[in-house]
Simulated scan of single mutants.
Amino acid sequence: MHLANNFFEQLKLLSDLDRNIKITLTSADIDTEEIHSLVDKREQLLLNIISDVKKSPELAETEQWQAAIALTKEVVNLMAQQTAAIGQTLQKYRHGSKSVQQYKKFL
């Protein structure tokens, strides 16, 4: 019973971390250090949760675990979208910078 209680408490913490990651990723000014810190905390927490699931495989069948998996997929998709958007912005910046260098040749 203690293992199950601890498991559900950890899932709640995981959900809170995921919500904070989503908020940080969707803010106007993305704080990469904050995201890195949250993802590190999430990884450690997830290792503990997976350890509990290995000890008690029936925990993997719970609705809360399935919800955690779905939320993880959402966070991963959001991270991929933000990374792609930042990559496009960087590409535009680099192109603009090259254009400025070309114009400077004429000065």
Rank of each mutant, 00 (worst) to 15 (best):
K92F: 02
Q88S: 08
L107K: 07
A4V: 07
A85S: 13
V39H: 04
N77D: 11
A80S: 08
K55R: 11
D31W: 03
Q91V: 01
L45S: 03
D31H: 06
E61F: 10
K98I: 00
Q88R: 09
I30R: 11
E61G: 14
V100D: 00
L90E: 07
T26D: 08
T62A: 02
D31A: 07
R94Q: 15
T72N: 14
K12N: 13
Q81I: 07
S27H: 11
P57F: 10
H2D: 14
Q66P: 02
T26K: 12
K105W: 02
Q88L: 09
D31F: 02
P57I: 09
T24C: 11
Q66Y: 10
W65F: 15
K12P: 02
A60E: 14
E74L: 03
A28D: 14
F8S: 02
V39E: 14
K54S: 10
K55T: 09
Q102W: 05
K55N: 09
N77Q: 08
Q44S: 05
N77I: 01
T83M: 08
S37L: 15
K41F: 03
K98Q: 09
T83G: 05
I50F: 12
K98F: 01
V100A: 06
H2R: 05
F106N: 04
K55P: 00
E61T: 09
G96A: 03
G87D: 12
A28M: 10
H95C: 00
L38T: 10
R42V: 04
I30L: 11
E63R: 05
I23S: 05
E63D: 10
Q10V: 02
T24Q: 10
D18Q: 15
I35G: 00
R19Q: 08
L38Y: 14
E34K: 15
K98P: 00
I50W: 07
A84G: 04
S51R: 05
L13Q: 13
K98T: 01
L13D: 08
A85D: 14
G87A: 13
K12F: 06
K12R: 11
Q82I: 04
I50H: 11
L78I: 12
G96N: 11
I30H: 04
L11F: 05
L47E: 15
I30M: 05
K104T: 02
E63G: 01
Q102P: 00
K41V: 01
A4I: 06
E74K: 00
S99H: 08
Q44R: 09
N77M: 06
Q10S: 09
D16L: 13
L14P: 03
K105V: 05
